[in-house]
Design a protein around this nucleic acid. Sequence first.
DNA 1: CACACGAAAGTAGTCCGACCACTCCTGAGG
DNA 2: CCTCAGGAGTGGTCGGACTACTTTCGTGTG
Lengths: 240, 240
Amino acid sequence: MSDPDGERTSVTQRAVDRIKAMISTGEVGPGERLPTERDLSARLGVSRSSMREAIRALTTLGVLESRHGAGVYVTALRPADLLETFSVLAEVSQGRTLLEVLQVRRMLEPAATALAAARAGAEDLDRIGALLDRMEGGPDVLCDDTVTADLGFHQAIVASTGNATLAAINDGLSSHTFNARVWAGHREAGLTAELREDHRRIHEALVARDPEAARAVATTHVLRVERWLGAELAEGTTEG
Amino acid sequence: MSDPDGERTSVTQRAVDRIKAMISTGEVGPGERLPTERDLSARLGVSRSSMREAIRALTTLGVLESRHGAGVYVTALRPADLLETFSVLAEVSQGRTLLEVLQVRRMLEPAATALAAARAGAEDLDRIGALLDRMEGGPDVLCDDTVTADLGFHQAIVASTGNATLAAINDGLSSHTFNARVWAGHREAGLTAELREDHRRIHEALVARDPEAARAVATTHVLRVERWLGAELAEGTTEG
DNA sequence: CACACGAAAGTAGTCCGACCACTCCTGAGG
DNA sequence: CCTCAGGAGTGGTCGGACTACTTTCGTGTG
């Protein structure tokens, strides 16, 4: 009867925790190489299979990086490394969750754009301007490149705030497939001009170094997309 | 998708993509059970070991859930499921990244608190009030419970916005250990009164259903913590 | 001596088969 | 009808063998 509720953690989970601990205590630092899978499994007293699953879990989290034939390394542990998994949200989100994501972006993007207006360097503005031109390249053709440029445009803005964590989170809230839907939807409604106008005004506010204007235009932009999505969701009844 | 000449992806990664595709196409929906590991590995032509690693990766991402002896299930795919890994960021962040995290919270929490002031229901306000009382319970003792109540206080507020995605993200940006540091630091400086005052005023703004006041107080609160962290980091010369 | 090349050692990736631990269903017994 | 023991099915763990890749180092050539 000695405490039947004892530790139920699986062998693999314990291995995950041990490796995490090795990193927390500084036994292995960012960029450094771990012992081999065989060494680790022997040292922790687990099979290599379980150790591999543990490594796979930490690899998925962005904490470790496996290089075939070379070894297992700790990543730089930068926000971008750890938030790569974040994109899964935007990938699988549908319906109501997509609206929630946009609502979060309505909180972040205006603030981020305002910050960018204050902080962006000359080369940042150049890159943003180039992406703007690329977006306006094909007047009516909604090629994949337009969507990609749109995505890059917003990412470049957020990146120019100098806050890598913010940039990583915002990236995770955006997805290529969703952006493609937005452009296609606006094209059907003949509203692509509004989207382009938003982007142009955002760029103007940035080069003018006008945070308040940047915030206002960014808000307008996200709200426009949000309203469109709301209408889109209201139409289709079958939204998984 | 079609990569005719490449095909450099690992077997396990292909298995991950296949399972993801099964979910995207609706072949298996949220909450449903997948075929057994043995079935899946046979169907996709990979070994059970590789299939297990693929399942482990998707389990880590919060997409799948393995139940010993029962089977592998697709999660509800709620934001909270998919963003559970997000907390790793707050766990391992130090120094500069911690400041970045706080900067993001300074963008999110004021907007979220304002939204909560408009949307929170009576039971939400009750829960928030109860947590406020719990925080004020021990006058000077900085027991673990105070930190936990503080964490719960902010989580309850964000949750009462009704935006589960926002709540999950905000949770990921908060961590118990960091909160404990904040309380300990403010206690040393004799500034716990300010923290308590912030919380009380946030609660007042919520019950008064005053979004603008809520936004202002929340901003003040995050800024206070941010300024404290900045000073704390400036003291310790050792930068991560 | 400098450099390129190839062999060899070491590493992660994959596969197989066996067994253990747990869950769920079934059917006999009360 | 309910209870509970048993079995079938499932994920969890293990050990070993083999493959594919990377790195290193010694050898040979210029």
